[in-house]
């Protein structure tokens, strides 16, 4: 088992009494798996994702529960101990790469950052070679050219690829992706999903994919957790959950997805 979350509770402390964002959820991930967490705003999906690497904002925290990564409880680690895992064994990518990339550093430096932090004695040349490899693997057409560029010189899709390169340069076992395609155009989104699939297939990188978008989850993930108001409502293989949802909330969610089967227009329906 790669990741085992046991009875996780997350609270917001800026209200009295504290508001429970995540209410005792448990789930696990196998090596090489792509697990989706889907839910609407307030479901607790993002809090769950952030808590794994202790990235919750200061107004919230884990009140109880365990997050076992290869048997080690991440929830009990100090910041320093966690630093060894963060960006090395577990990496994370976010919705808006512009806010998580540093605007005044070149792409190259940011992609190399992980290698430096977890210094395994790579020389400058080795780091650059690895960064170029990662950029190439993230599907950027001209790694050498992009290496010296700044984030604002790139399109949204390219920035997301840079983020992916920076996340994968250390060859993590687990990639946590929080709505990584939500801000992108559909054609770019399709490419990024394809890229994540390739990375998963090639390196066996496990991916925990958080999204509000059921259609995206269906395209990418093998298994899915449906969350609502801090609890896991339903869990299972994507095909089973989408084709034979058991819970009312899942059914409601699925029925609401815009599709190309049924128009809402009476006039067109009657044609």
């Amino acid at each position: 088992m790669l990741l085992e979350v046991k009875n996780l509770n997350i609270e917001f402390y800026d209200t009295d009494p504290p508001e429970k964002a995540v209410k005792g959820i448990s789930f696990s991930m196998e090596q090489g798996e792509i697990l989706g967490i889907v839910g609407e705003s307030g479901s607790g999906k993002t809090q769950t994702a952030l808590s794994i690497l202790q990235l919750l904002k200061s107004n919230s925290g884990i009140s109880s529960g365990e997050i076992l990564f290869k048997g080690k409880n991440l929830a009990g680690l100090s910041g320093r101990e966690l630093q060894k895992i963060r960006g090395k064994e577990i990496s994370m990518i976010f919705q808006e790469p512009m806010t998580s990339l540093n605007p005044v550093l070149t792409v190259g430096r940011q992609v190399e950052e992980g290698l430096k932090l977890h210094g395994e004695g790579f020389s400058k040349e080795q780091r650059k070679a690895k960064a170029l490899d990662a950029l190439g693997e993230a599907g950027l057409p001209d790694p050498e050219g992009i290496y010296g560029k700044y984030p604002h010189q790139l399109s949204g899709g390219m920035r997301q690829r840079v983020m992916i390169a920076a996340a994968l340069v250390t060859e993590p076992e687990l990639l946590i992706a929080d709505e990584p395609t939500t801000a992108l155009d559909v054609t770019v989104q399709a490419q990024i999903l394809e890229l994540l699939k390739e990375i998963n297939a090639k390196h066996g990188t496990s991916i925990l994919f958080i999204s509000h978008d059921l259609a995206v989850i269906r395209k990418l993930c093998g298994r899915v957790l449906v969350m609502n108001q801090g609890v896991v409502v339903e869990e299972g293989e994507v095909s089973r959950v989408f084709d034979h949802p058991q819970k009312d909330y899942t059914k409601k969610l699925l029925a609401a997805i815009p599709d190309r089967r049924r128009s809402l227009r009476k006039r067109r329906r009657s044609q």
Binding site: P258, S263, R265
Partner: peptide, 12 residues
């Protein structure tokens, strides 16, 4: 809209 499925369901 940027969302084709929403467009499909709503528009003439």
């Amino acid at each position: 809209s940027h969302d084709l499925n929403v467009i499909y369901q709503m528009c003439d």
